[in-house]
Design a protein around this nucleic acid. Sequence first.
DNA 1: GGAATTTGTTGTTCGAGAGAACAGGAACGG
DNA 2: CCGTTCCTGTTCTCTCGAACAACAAATTCC
Lengths: 409, 409
Amino acid sequence: MSPQRRAGLGTNQEAVRRHNLGTVLRHVHRAGHISRAELTSLMGLNRSTIAGLVAELESLGVSERAHPVEGARQGAGRPSAGVRIAAEGPYVVAVDLGVDRAVVARVGLGGQVLQRAQAPVHDGGEAWQVGASVASLVRQVVADAPPAAPLVGIGISVPGLVRRTDGLIRLAPNLGWQDVSFGGIVLAALGVDIPVQLGNDADLGALAEHRRGVGVGVDDLIYISGNVGVGAGIIAGGVKLDGAGGYFGEVGHLPFGLAGLTCHCGNRGCWETEVGAHAIAEAIHCPADKVAQLDEVLDGYGEPPAQLRATGTALGHGLASIVNVFNPRMVVLGGYFRSLYSLVRAEVNAGLTERTLPAPLESVTLALPGLGSDSALLGAAEIALEPLFVDPVAALGTALVDVRAGLAG
Amino acid sequence: MSPQRRAGLGTNQEAVRRHNLGTVLRHVHRAGHISRAELTSLMGLNRSTIAGLVAELESLGVSERAHPVEGARQGAGRPSAGVRIAAEGPYVVAVDLGVDRAVVARVGLGGQVLQRAQAPVHDGGEAWQVGASVASLVRQVVADAPPAAPLVGIGISVPGLVRRTDGLIRLAPNLGWQDVSFGGIVLAALGVDIPVQLGNDADLGALAEHRRGVGVGVDDLIYISGNVGVGAGIIAGGVKLDGAGGYFGEVGHLPFGLAGLTCHCGNRGCWETEVGAHAIAEAIHCPADKVAQLDEVLDGYGEPPAQLRATGTALGHGLASIVNVFNPRMVVLGGYFRSLYSLVRAEVNAGLTERTLPAPLESVTLALPGLGSDSALLGAAEIALEPLFVDPVAALGTALVDVRAGLAG
DNA sequence: GGAATTTGTTGTTCGAGAGAACAGGAACGG
DNA sequence: CCGTTCCTGTTCTCTCGAACAACAAATTCC
């Protein structure tokens, strides 16, 4: 699931080709439209080698020749031909499973959302019901796709703990799920067998912001997600961290709460009891049935009341500990923290500065997501696309070619 | 400093050879004595390719042909010739800078300590004084080395924050240092210019235990070091985490302390105020001048007094949070925690079990260091050896060949 | 003792990237 | 307006490293 290669293996020449082909595609995916000259300098390979790789990608139907990139290089010399994602190229389906709604999108190489659909998800719905409605959304989203374009896979963002090895949803408290094989359920509802990847919403938010959001070029970042529960996704050295089981970054139960309130996990003083959605909702007397739309409620405020300012300070203090431990260059505040931070920015910053050690403080920045509320969705797309960058030929081999017929059921 | 390759680069054929040669050497280093047949299956390369790589390593003088490995394979077939570290092969010097003493060792490929020396370090000593005495220890340790053997580099373990980019010691509270370029000081005292690597003691402990200690084969582990201050080194996915500046894993200032004692960092309730050496010393009425030997004091106890049992519970509770966040497969308790854990194992385990979430708890193990008190020292050796595994030819090129003459000053 | 099995060795093949030579296309300078 | 300069795409050849095949060597098993 992670892009890390197995350590200790040797490299044969087939692996070289695979890696280089995948890396070219990764660059095209990142930039959308890039010149061959840029590819040569980015990858440090010879012009002729790049030409061969680009030609192979074109023959695979994933990229196509394009006009030179606008405003690329100023000066003399022959302009370099562009490479861009093919119009009828491969795509994936991304699913963002929220507490109250599911968003499904068709996302092409390059990270563009080509089509989108959503539907409400009933609280406490059974997994197979949710799976059926997700499958129906998938069919909608895929209906207008070019017939020749292959479907590479499905990526699903889940608000809960996802086991790394097999994508099993171990625990999703806000969905009321435990040990649910949601990937299999969706595939069964669709009646196909294609690669499915699942991930935690905070992890995927971090991945998306790192690749396409405010965190582009930032190799050490943390994405804190407020989505009823509080979680973090961590990118360290440019790599998404998973932990032994896939549960890396569960910061919601760190005991930052001085009041010592009891948490649903059984312990006391968890950070979630201070800055979790339910805690905030209670503090500002927000009705319980609107907790899922807490960000909209917060956006409605002009001036923050004192309770929110105190929450902002608590958020800043908690972030200080997180920064001390993870030493990130950037912390992205996602979910309802996005709205909260806009309201009480001063308090959060003060709380952070007050408690962070000097060394980690000097290089860290707080930021809002560059992808708005689509972070997790686009992160789901990224993990579904990942096989293409590891081995384009193999990934296209397992892709679903005749999508309409395949999903007709 | 970290073994991660720069992302986005292409692989040319020169890089392939470099990588494969380094990987063979890495395996020989790890195993000490390994058969060529094992190398072929581990690396997935052809027999003849491995033969060529091994021949090159032999011609470089880093490995030599050996008898077949004892008790390797049972069954028919020609026994596979062994590969082992050359007797007069390259070595490094490892330095473990402690609070009260410096240990210096000559360490060969394969991780064997070939020679060792130590000297007390005066509390509050100036960096140049410490540097001079370290340099003198280095000369001792190198004196009996085979004259043909090259010195690849120096690795230094420091109890403090080390900046990743240049190895500057940003802050070492227990040495009273701030912004000290200790690597340069030692090199100047030696009068040579060879590669020097510095690292935090907990980080290096984690690295060593992962490669040569209890954590062999465990790709997600945490090493908690108790050395006056409390810190953690984290290996995730088989890679040591550094963070943006190199300060990843500073867990000593997480606010786990319910009593809310004031810490030297200015905040309240830091974990160090509960399980730090000074806190423990105070709790058991240990004289202040023996804090540096806290482990020996603890080893003197037969039955733990109540105060230590409470400390054990606090340690367990803190570890629970750490396990929740980092989701490791193993937690190694180093420094004086080694002695403490042996005394109050039950309390630590109970505290951990009580507060860890079910999912991360089910896969985690507490362990004692497999390398005793040499973890940080051997970790320092590992980072000094690392260049050899990235590019053996280049690393041997920058190595010091005529060591006696070079260090004669 | 012969068959089976596994490995080391040697020479050849194959494939991917590097490099050189040439052509194409634009900006620049006069 | 035209030649120069600069950079890039294209094509062909070269080089190098890994794979492959065939054979020899060394051990176990029957």
